[in-house]
Design a binder for these strands. Sequence first.
DNA 1: CACCACCTTGCCACTGAGTGGCGTTTGCTT
DNA 2: AAGCAAACGCCACTCAGTGGCAAGGTGGTG
Lengths: 222, 222
Amino acid sequence: MDIDSVSPPGPRPTLRERKKQRTREALVDTALRLFTQRDFDSVTLDELCDRVEVSKRTFFRTFASKEEVAMAPYEDMWKAFIAELETRPVDAKRSILQVLQDAVLAAMRTMNTGDWAHRLLSCTRLAGRTPAIEAHCLYFCGVTVRAALDVLHRRFGLDPHDLRPRLALDILAAAFHRALETWADRPQDPTVEHLATDTLAAFAAIPGSLTLTGVAPANQGG
Amino acid sequence: MDIDSVSPPGPRPTLRERKKQRTREALVDTALRLFTQRDFDSVTLDELCDRVEVSKRTFFRTFASKEEVAMAPYEDMWKAFIAELETRPVDAKRSILQVLQDAVLAAMRTMNTGDWAHRLLSCTRLAGRTPAIEAHCLYFCGVTVRAALDVLHRRFGLDPHDLRPRLALDILAAAFHRALETWADRPQDPTVEHLATDTLAAFAAIPGSLTLTGVAPANQGG
DNA sequence: CACCACCTTGCCACTGAGTGGCGTTTGCTT
DNA sequence: AAGCAAACGCCACTCAGTGGCAAGGTGGTG
């Protein structure tokens, strides 16, 4: 539950922590590779732990569930989002939703190390075809939204009984998930900047989604 | 995955199906009672099956998981929502979001039999304090949204690449979940009409959530 | 360098969810 | 009444996840 993988705290961490971090990265890497080559369900934790040469007990000291290791890159980004939200300037001229958009864009750009984008692509596609992973992903997103709501209340002087900030966060999550979907369908190599572009496009579609109307096809059914 | 519990198809179903239905209702009732009295995790399926005098094998022929039996009332309503959406008139003067609101209100009113409201209250509160149930609930909602999107594309002549219908559905889901939260906090006895009121209130808050701005508290942090 | 304290790991045994196979019961049909 | 198919119960099994305890590595101290 700690966020030591997001922002290195200046002085290099102790050897013990670096080892822990290496184990964590090896687990994520190997897990994403195995889950992608075969199926999430057909890869047992025993097999994964054998490959990384780690005991199952250690696995569960690093991740809370089999799903969590697959969604680590996604979760890391949401943790960075919370951190970003803590430092955004409060400006009455910029709507909450715009501030949230700024924060999510800034968060994904802080992840621009190594090939985080490749890992995020893997776990996004994995989530798209594995119910258990998708469920875990949505739950984690819900927890993050509640944490972000606390930050909004504390820093932006909002009424805790007002539904609107919470709805704004839900809409942010929806837009970001749509962006991920679009981005994961791109044929080229995944980059953070493409993801940013798709995120902006999803946000831009929000106002129209409230007023959009339909037209009956030629053969009107019912 | 069938929806035989939602709308009785005129002629009374066969005895075999009525028995199946009784078993299903007994399982839901007993499960909600046990999960509420104690904890979701501390009630084993063996215990639940003993109480209902049903084999564990039969349980898994009726529900796909331990979480599903707890969320049955919630899932039934979403199934009714899909059915409603199939029959809503197509009117270019009414926005998609308004149509969705109509459908969800109509769906909850079709559930107005027995004490569905009480069961929904139980499972809403359960979902609020049980991660595994909340995750399953969000996943099921996601599946429903995709099914609803198909209906929109087919009946309302929308472009499959347009993000707006999908965002409208995500916003609907968010508003309904906020309504459920508000409703589950009411001290009085739960009724469908109160839920409808809270749903309308949540929908009414949507436009404002896009434009809401914050103000820094006295001690501006950051 | 030696030693101790502590954090981390590995091993073992265990619980409980979920699945497949198969023989038996029960409701439907003619 | 007899035959059929659906549903059920029982059994054995896999695998995720947990608790306890002993062993090994790490950091700090004299």
